[in-house]
Amino acid sequence: MRITIIFFIIALLSTISADAQKFITKTGYIKFYSDAPLEKIEAHNRQVNSALDFTTGGFVFKVLMKSFEFEKALMQEHFNENYVDSDKFPSATFVGTVTNIKDVNLSQDGIYDINVDGKLTMHGVTREIHEKGTFEVKQEKLLGKAKFNLVVADYKITIPGNVGNNISNTVEVTVEITLEKANL
């Protein structure tokens, strides 16, 4: 019986310590960029939500599609209206893990390479993605950076024939977040 109680206490403690290792941001930055002969398309989102569980490596993102800002207002309207159907699919989410989170040492400032695996859901389509990035540990904060390409057709985002030459099929996604310890 005593052993059981001890086990329970350990279990309880482990959850508490896990809580203390959560990181969060609400002001992350995501940019996407696509270059095509006629038109350069670039959009910025500075309201990216992200959270990391440092003990398990659990890593999530949530991005409101309507928070992407374009240089041309018309592009922004077409993006929401014709390409990503923001009314129907208001946000994109990523649910995954930093598979090598154990390599990151919070007490040692520096830049660590990370591997991220998980599921990206956008425009109602969920796909597995595996990308590389970096975590920079700086005064107990985690500065995450990644750059990767997405094929828009993978997410059933169609580009019509008459503007096909204006818009590239792949977009380069740049992610920059500063995760801070969550106050729980």
């Binding site: 279990a11 482990s14 959270a51 649910v95």
Partner: peptide, 26 residues
């Protein structure tokens, strides 16, 4: 009870996983 105690942390850790992270940001 011992079995329960052993597996409890695992349940806790899965509950501590991504779903909880998502609800944390939401």
């Amino acid at each position: 009870l011992i079995l329960l105690a052993i597996i409890a942390p695992f349940f806790v850790s899965t509950a501590n996983g991504q779903d909880e992270l998502l609800s944390m940001i939401e």
